[in-house]
C-alpha cells in the first residue's frame, strides 16, 4: 500500500483505464500539454497521444456536448471541467442530452461518459469559484453523482465511473488534490453507490462526503472523543445513488444523526439525507436530525468571512452536542 496524493490517485485511475480500453479518451481545458490545471492528467499526453488527451478550447457547452455525442456511438469519454463552476455552462448538454438519451431513445442508446473536475471551495476564490454543486446534479434522474474524500476512493471510484454505462458526475475536491492517503496496490476498484464507515462509533452518526470528511468531520470526531463521545463517520462517497442501507444501519445503531456538507443548506443534498433518515428511521431516532452546512450566502474573499461561511469542526461539535441534548 503506497501513500499518494489525491491527484496522483486520479492520474493512476485515468492511466490504467486508458491503458486497458482504447475507447476511453480525456478532453478538457489544459488537460494535454499543460498536464491539467491541477496536474491530474500529468504525463497522459505523451503516453496516449493527442487524439486521446485533447486540449479543448474554452467552450464547456461545446466540448461537453461533443463528449456526449462520442459516448452515444461507442466511445467512453472523460470530460474534464476545469471546475464545476464552469460546468454550469455545459449543464444543458449534461442535463438535457446525457441524462435523457437512454430514456428518449426508449433504450436504444446509452451514454457512458464521465464529467469530472474540482468542486467546492478552493481557498480565497470568492463567489464564482467556490461553489459545491453536487445537489444540482443529484436532482436529475439519469445521472450518477460521486464525490470521493480520500485518494483511495478517488482512484477506485473513478475507475468504476469510467466503466459505468451511464453519465457520471465525478466531483473532486479542489482542496483535496494535494491530500495524501494510502491507496491499495494493483487493481483497486470501488463500487458506485456504496458508503464507507470511516470511523466506527456508537453515539452519533455523522453522514458526510468529499472534503468535509478529512477537513472537518474526522477532526471533530477526535475532539468529541476527548469528551467521551464516540461518533460514527459514514462517508457516502456516492451521492447518487445514495447508500440508504448503510445510512439506516448506522442510525439504527446510534439513534442520532448529523449531516455535514460544504454546500448551501437550502435545498442542499443534506436535506435529502435528512428527509430519508427522518422518514425511514423515525422509530430509531432519539433526536431530530442535525445539519451542518455552508452558510446560505455567496462566498466572500476575505479570510475571516470565508472561514465563517464554510463548515468547521467547531460547528460539527456543536451540532453533535445538540442531537445529544448536551
Amino acid at each position: 500500500m503506497a501513500e499518494i496524493a489525491y491527484r496522483e490517485a486520479l492520474n493512476q485511475a485515468l492511466f490504467e483505464e486508458m491503458s486497458r480500453d482504447p475507447r476511453v479518451f480525456l478532453m478538457g481545458e489544459e488537460v494535454a500539454r499543460y498536464d491539467g490545471a491541477y496536474k491530474v492528467s500529468k504525463g497522459l499526453l505523451d503516453k496516449f497521444g493527442s487524439a486521446r488527451v485533447v486540449d479543448a478550447p474554452i467552450s464547456e457547452l461545446g466540448f461537453g456536448g461533443l463528449g456526449v455525442g462520442a459516448a452515444m456511438v461507442g466511445l467512453r469519454p472523460v470530460i474534464e471541467m476545469m471546475t464545476w463552476n464552469f460546468a454550469i455552462l455545459a449543464m444543458d448538454q449534461i442535463v438535457n442530452s446525457a441524462a435523457k438519451l437512454r430514456h428518449m431513445s426508449g433504450g436504444q442508446l446509452r451514454c457512458p461518459i464521465v464529467f469530472r473536475g474540482p468542486n467546492g471551495a478552493g481557498g480565497r476564490l470568492s463567489s464564482q469559484h467556490s461553489q459545491a454543486l453536487e445537489a444540482n446534479y443529484a436532482h436529475f434522474p439519469g445521472l450518477k453523482v460521486i464525490a470521493p474524500g480520500t485518494p483511495a476512493d478517488a482512484k477506485g471510484l473513478l475507475k468504476s465511473a469510467i466503466r459505468d454505462d451511464n453519465p457520471v458526475i465525478f466531483m473532486e475536491g479542489e482542496l483535496l488534490y494535494g491530500v495524501k492517503g494510502e491507496v491499495p496496490d494493483g487493481e483497486h476498484v470501488v463500487p458506485i453507490g456504496k458508503a464507507d464507515i470511516k470511523r466506527e462509533g456508537s453515539d452519533v452518526t455523522i453522514v458526510t462526503w468529499s472534503r468535509m470528511l478529512t477537513a472537518v468531520v474526522l477532526p471533530a470526531a477526535e475532539l468529541l472523543a476527548q469528551e467521551g463521545i464516540n461518533v460514527e463517520v459514514l462517508d457516502l462517497r456516492t451521492i447518487k445513488p445514495m447508500d440508504e442501507e448503510a445510512i439506516a444501519a448506522s442510525v439504527k445503531k446510534t439513534n442520532r444523526a448529523v449531516i455535514v456538507e460544504e454546500g448551501w443548506g437550502y435545498a442542499g443534498f443534506g436535506a435529502h439525507v435528512a428527509d430519508f433518515i427522518s422518514r425511514q428511521c423515525f422509530d430509531d431516532l432519539d433526536a431530530p436530525v442535525g445539519r451542518v452546512t455552508g452558510l446560505d450566502v455567496n462566498m466572500a474573499y476575505a479570510e475571516n468571512l470565508e472561514r465563517l461561511i464554510l463548515p468547521s469542526a467547531a460547528r460539527v461539535v456543536e451540532a453533535v452536542h445538540q442531537v445529544l441534548y448536551r
Binding site: G65, L66, G69, A71, V73, D92, S97
Partner: peptide, 14 residues
C-alpha cells in the same frame, strides 16, 4: 442542442 452532439459523432468516426 444537437449541434455539439453531431461533432461528437464525427469525432468518434475520426
Amino acid at each position: 442542442g444537437q449541434i455539439p452532439l453531431a461533432a461528437g459523432l464525427g469525432f468518434a468516426s475520426k
